[in-house]
Design a binder for these strands. Structure first.
Length: 465
RNA sequence: GGCGGCUUAGCCAAGUGGGAAGGCAGAGGUCUGCAAAACCUCUAUUCUCCGGUUCAAAUCCGGAAGCCGCCUCCA
């Protein structure tokens, strides 16, 4: 079956195709590094990651770009409050962001361009838009005239004539011809302090939308394959990116626009402004596993809202535990009689897995396939109808699935000499039927995060989750 | 007000015309010194509600109710 994605442009699932054979160029709107990202933000990056990984799974060469917004109102005011430079301020959150990506087992993009390092490209783009009559300057700022771009609204399916002034109108609105026009370049203001660039379009700083147009086109070309982000970016951010890019280049900007739904908390979207957010750090500090958070987010299809709850996180952890136990048990299989049934099971699972993922990255269904495989193989393991080489093949298949899912990464369990001798001591105690001592050792080890299991093949140990 | 989406078991969640996936939780059983893991069995005659189309509807059409998002910084 062919790979299909739901394209926000057409609101339908479309068969995926690439501009350059075998190669995909994709862009995800990254974080504004003014604070720690919350797990709602990470839903977007995990979604981008799944897309990235599955394209690699399918054999495409992928160039993946994610921007870092390191200049805007919030970063400027944050740095001023602390009396430090903009860069010093954003560096902390940029570092934290990359740490978090690692915790969540998100595969790095090739390029993470920063807005402040691409002022020149943005200015060029603004100049082009001015020259072509899509932009106008007023009081030191430059604005995009949406009226001049007739397809405006094609992504969000909003009628530009319907975009009227809402109740809230910013103080600088009078500088625009129309309220829905947006800033390409913001003229310097006292509030910006020392944050400004002297450029051909004046002293000031870039608008938000222009950075994504300038940087994505710089690294991926004027016309590229996939652009992703949260649904809240459809309007105005992505609509504006299209307007800027297509007006400037007179070419189609992006073929596939993919958007993930929000992470909800008690019926509302998780957002800084609502105060109902958890950062990854918050949850790790409470002892939750980052990969359980990843699992929780993958258990629901990316275009569905997910309600975040601690019960859900607990359930995710337990599901993950089952997968880990399964792979651990497979590694211990000893039989030498191959079972021809295994290959059939694996082929079926692979076909089902790919059908699920091909259908607009249906990770819920893909996880269902994975657990069905777990159950099938567990049964054969129980019946001892599996050889060690069969087990190796199962592990390979699971590993392949996981190259797309990214759930099986675990820290190595380090068992030091002290622990080893305790385990030995307990084995002896059990032989001598000193169960009181045996249970005490088991309890002590559990406190250290090591769980013991006695099987017919001897005592196994694993990390407590 | 404009545009869009959602409602499936105790909880989470796939499924878009013809067998209601999967996970978590729960119950019973096998195994075990006990526990854990694993296995087996059970847990939605039914998919928010009301009409309609059809031989056949969770799935298509119309309507209602509830909830959510975007229209403003936002993943």
């Amino acid at each position: 079956m062919a790979l299909r994605f739901f394209n926000t442009l057409t609101r339908t699932k479309e068969e995926f195709y690439t501009i350059h054979p075998g190669e995909v160029r994709m862009y995800t709107c990254g974080p504004t590094v003014y604070d720690f990202a919350h797990i709602g933000n990470f839903r977007a990056y995990i979604f981008g990651d799944i897309l990235h990984r599955y394209l690699l799974y399918k054999g495409y060469r992928v160039t993946y770009v994610m921007n870092i917004t390191d200049v805007d109102d919030k970063t400027i005011s944050g740095s001023q409050k602390e009396g430090i430079s903009l860069n010093e301020y954003t560096q902390r959150f940029r570092d934290a962001f990359f740490d978090d990506l690692k915790s969540l087992n998100i595969k790095p993009a090739q390029i993470y361009p920063e807005a402040t390092a691409h002022i020149k490209e943005m200015v060029e783009l603004v100049k082009t838009l001015l020259a072509k009559g899509y932009a106008y300057a007023n009081e030191g700022s430059t604005y995009y005239r949406i009226e001049s771009f007739s397809p405006y609204g094609k992504l969000s399916h909003m009628d530009k004539s319907g975009l009227k002034a809402g109740a809230r109108v910013a103080s600088d609105e009078y500088e625009k011809e129309q309220v829905a026009d947006f800033a390409l370049w913001k003229g310097w203001d006292e509030k910006d302090g020392g944050v400004f660039w002297e450029t051909e379009v004046g002293k000031g700083r870039p608008g938000w939308h222009i950075e994504c147009s300038a940087m994505s086109m710089k690294y991926l070309g004027k016309h590229f394959d996939i652009h992703t982000g949260g649904v809240d970016l459809i309007f105005p951010h992505h609509e504006n990116e299209i307007a800027q890019s297509e007006a400037a280049t007179e070419e189609k900007f992006v073929n596939f626009w993919l958007h993930n739904e929000h992470l909800m908390v008690e019926g509302r979207k998780m957002a800084k402004s609502f105060g109902n957010f958890y950062t990854l750090r918050d949850l790790l500090q409470k002892g939750y596993y980052p990969i359980a958070i990843r699992y929780l987010l993958l258990a629901t299809h990316y275009r569905q809202q997910v309600n975040f709850t601690f019960d859900g996180l607990e359930a995710a952890k337990n599901a993950l535990k089952r997968l880990y136990d399964f792979t651990d048990n497979l590694k211990l299989v000893k039989g030498d009689k191959d079972n021809p049934e295994i290959i059939q099971i694996l082929q079926k699972a692979t076909a089902d897995f790919e059908a699920a993922m091909d259908d607009d990255l249906n990770t819920s269904e893909a996880l269902g396939v994975l657990f069905t495989l777990v159950k099938d193989i567990n049964r054969l393991m129980e019946e001892k109808k599996i050889s060690s080489s069969d087990a190796k093949q199962v592990l390979e298949t699971i590993g392949k699935f996981d190259s797309a899912l990214g759930l099986l990464k675990r820290e190595e369990l380090i068992v030091d000499d002290e622990v080893k001798s305790l385990i030995e001591k307990r084995i002896t105690a059990r032989k001598e039927k000193d169960f009181k001592l045996a249970d005490q050792i088991r309890g002590d080890l559990e406190d250290k995060g090591i769980v013991l299991e006695d099987t017919s093949d001897g005592t196994k140990w694993k990390r407590k989750m």
